[in-house]
Amino acid sequence: MKCYLFCLGYKGYFVLQELVRLNKLELICGVVSCEDTTQESYFENIKEICLKNNVKFFHKTMLNKIDKNKIAIAIAWRWIIKDFSQVIVMHDSLLPRYRGFNPLVTSLINGDECIGVSILYGINEYDKGDIIAQRKLNISYPITIWEAILKISYLYAELCVEILEKISKGQKILGVPQEQKKATYSLWRDDKDYFIQWKWSSKKIVRFVDAVGFPYDGAKVLFGGNVLRVLRAEIFEDVRVVNRDYGKVIFMDNGCCVVVCKKGLVKLCEVVDMQGKQWNAPKFRIRFE
């Protein structure tokens, strides 16, 4: 039996590239994709690979034209897949940890020493299905979300090829029930969740800036009623501040604001306005809201 791949984003694109490189495209019967306004979707790239290699390509709106007696494998897919004989999901965490939304972002903000991918059976309750296989890798900080995506894309490709080969040989795909008591959840994010919280430690703030950057919307601060985007930040050597008011600028270092956090100091190395124009502090006495 062959499978349909539901592909989105760089991870979906990378898996298809690897299937081309390994001459494994014959293991799939088609690809489903669509545009995604929340981040770069790689829709055109995915479509181009399919057209160049004579792989059936379907937009998300064309599901009525697909044989749903097949298996669907979801790669970075953000929507519920219904009515297929089986649905297999690839998830950016070592389940049962970080069920839910943007788990890779959450793990980087939390400073986890390893990240990973789980492949599991899709069921009605999200990310609770039996685990088929997992891969993990160790990381060190600083690391941006884009660097982490590049790294785990290789894990996605390895797991996808492994499962496709088993399915093509008619092998039974066994899953292991998750340990429910060890489950944790990662919540969805909206616009408010991109603002830096100065009550955090300097280490967490720097991890946050790196974790919500491209292809996400970027870390933000509010000053004078205007939203600014922080593209790059680093830890600055702490000093003894007896009235530690979070969010106040304590120093200027080469034109960059050094801000007081609950623990430590953060240097805002690159700040732009919402139009992408470089922002420079108009004065020394600044409090970021």
Rank of each mutant, 00 (worst) to 15 (best):
C3T: 06
C3K: 05
L5N: 12
G9D: 15
G9K: 04
K11V: 10
G12M: 11
G12S: 10
F14T: 01
L16E: 10
V20A: 06
R21V: 07
L22A: 15
K24V: 09
K24W: 08
C29P: 08
V32D: 13
S33T: 03
C34K: 14
C34P: 00
E35M: 08
E35V: 05
D36T: 15
D36R: 13
S41V: 08
Y42L: 12
F43R: 07
C50R: 03
K52Q: 09
N53F: 08
F57V: 10
F57E: 07
H59G: 09
H59T: 13
M62S: 14
N64C: 13
K65E: 08
D67P: 03
I73H: 03
A74G: 02
W77E: 08
K82C: 07
D83E: 10
Q86D: 09
M90F: 14
H91E: 02
H91P: 04
S93T: 04
L94I: 13
L94N: 03
P96M: 04
R99D: 02
F101Y: 13
L104V: 08
V105K: 02
T106D: 15
L108W: 10
L108K: 01
G111M: 08
G111I: 12
C114K: 15
V117D: 02
S118Q: 04
I123N: 03
E125M: 06
Y126D: 15
Y126T: 14
K128D: 07
G129H: 08
D130C: 03
I131H: 11
I132P: 02
I132Y: 05
A133T: 09
N138Q: 14
N138W: 03
I139D: 04
I139G: 02
P142D: 09
A148V: 07
A148Y: 04
K151G: 06
I152W: 01
I152M: 01
L159Q: 06
C160R: 05
C160K: 02
V161R: 06
E162G: 13
E162T: 12
K169P: 06
Q171N: 15
Q171K: 14
L174N: 15
L174C: 12
V176T: 10
A183V: 01
R189I: 13
Y194A: 06
I196S: 02
I196F: 04
Q197T: 12
W198M: 09
S201K: 05
S201I: 05
V206I: 02
V209P: 02
G213I: 02
G213W: 04
F214E: 06
G218K: 04
V221N: 00
L228N: 00
L228K: 00
R229P: 00
V230Y: 00
E234Q: 14
E234I: 07
D238Q: 12
D238P: 02
V242E: 15
N243F: 11
N243C: 11
Y246W: 13
Y246N: 05
Y246E: 10
V249M: 03
V249F: 03
V249Q: 00
I250K: 05
N254P: 01
C256P: 02
V258I: 01
G264D: 07
V266L: 11
V266C: 09
L268V: 13
C269E: 06
E270L: 15
V271P: 00
V272P: 03
D273V: 00
D273G: 00
Q275V: 14
Q275T: 07
Q278I: 15
A281C: 08
P282E: 05
K283G: 01
F284I: 09
R285I: 01
I286H: 00
E289F: 04
